[in-house]
Design a protein around this nucleic acid. Structure first.
Lengths: 202, 202
DNA sequence: ATTATAATGAACAAACTGTTGATTAATGAT
DNA sequence: ATCATTAATCAACAGTTTGTTCATTATAAT
């Protein structure tokens, strides 16, 4: 693995990535070979091994990179703050930032959350939201008087948000980061039924 | 591909499947070779090709089989009926049946919804629930007076239910089909906030 | 007991892998 | 502009895995 100063490496690396994303739209990671990538990218096969150990390793590196960026934003989130914005009908700023990161890495996200995507990435993503997006204590309290165990409640709601993101991707990312942020802010605070107007606020 | 009457085929086929599930718990489908499966199953490699074209084909066949079973149950669901059961605090019977099928194919489901799982299966599953579990007209009506587009609302809620299933699997399927059915019935009708008691019924 | 056929074992070329060593060429620093 | 560094190339290597074939053996259905 070479250092990251030389333009040649950067160019080669970007070309390799771009090509991997392309191939991931076409077939499962499953079937993608080093030869596939390098021959399409018009890069010597040996060069691949100067950058990555193999295809799974390459995917792993990319996942870590994007997750790190998302992590830095999610860590800033305080669920208690979202209520203030939700009541004003405005998007909570960090939720916009998340969608901005997703847009920035659009090709990767499309590949990794698409039909040939990677469940373990979704799992990480979910794990993350679980740990940070929800006020665990509030949920625990609520769970005491409730039929539903708090871990199931949290799983239900985090997956819902990820589903929102996946649907957004499948729809061609046709809403802006601001619109998605606003949507998410509302849904987190009021839930789908209240937000949609099926049930009125208590 | 041989017919399905001969005991030898059935035995071989079941052994192949069982071994695939095992391997899927250990590594990504990605890395599983025909040789992996046959050598562990102590079956001639050539025999594999008498049953399946390759590993992805094998997975595809299994997915179709399980999906067909789930489909037959989901088709019986009428979302309007769920309300009756939800109000009585009882599980809507088809929701129990779904979890019974999932338990029946536990090894497969664990493999395909686990970290090394298959996003396209989740996608199918979601597609399915989207088309059948929700009363589209009711959602369309609700969407007219709402900030949130109905397709996003449906994506949000279907993913939530899948998240429930995945969490159940990750927790070792430690709730019974009845308990999960009851949980799902409540959540579909009242949403997480009302079900958990954070917000009271309108 | 006989027939049909599933499974085996061995062998094959083909493709992909991971690695090496020598060579070429682009880059960064001076 | 020159020069040392090093990324990228090319060719070659043995080792796997693949997909297929064929003759043989073992098992099941009747």
């Amino acid at each position: 693995m070479p250092r990251k100063t030389d333009r040649r490496q950067i160019r080669t690396n970007q070309l390799l990535r771009k090509t991997l994303f392309e191939l991931m739209q076409e077939k499962s990671v499953n079937a993608i070979t080093v030869t596939d990538i390098t021959s399409r990218a018009d890069i010597n096969r040996g060069t691949f091994y100067l950058h990555y150990r193999d295809v799974p390793d390459m995917l792993e590196k990319l996942k870590e990179e994007v997750m790190a960026e998302i992590r830095s934003i999610v860590l800033e989130i305080d669920p208690r703050d979202t209520r203030i914005y939700a009541e004003k009908g405005e998007p909570y700023p960090p939720s916009i930032q998340i969608f901005e990161v997703l847009i920035k890495h659009g090709d990767f996200i499309k590949a990794v959350l698409g039909p040939n995507g990677d469940m373990s990435f979704v799992r990480q993503f979910r794990q993350f939201m679980t740990e940070n997006m929800y006020d665990k204590q509030a949920f625990r309290m609520a769970a005491q008087n409730s039929r539903i165990p708090s871990d199931y409640l949290i799983a239900y709601m985090t997956s819902a948000n990820i589903g929102l993101v996946i649907h957004w991707i499948e729809s061609g990312m046709n809403l802006s980061a601001e619109e998605m942020g606003a949507l998410m802010t509302q849904l987190i605070n009021y839930g789908p039924l209240i937000t949609s107007g099926i049930v009125s606020k208590a």
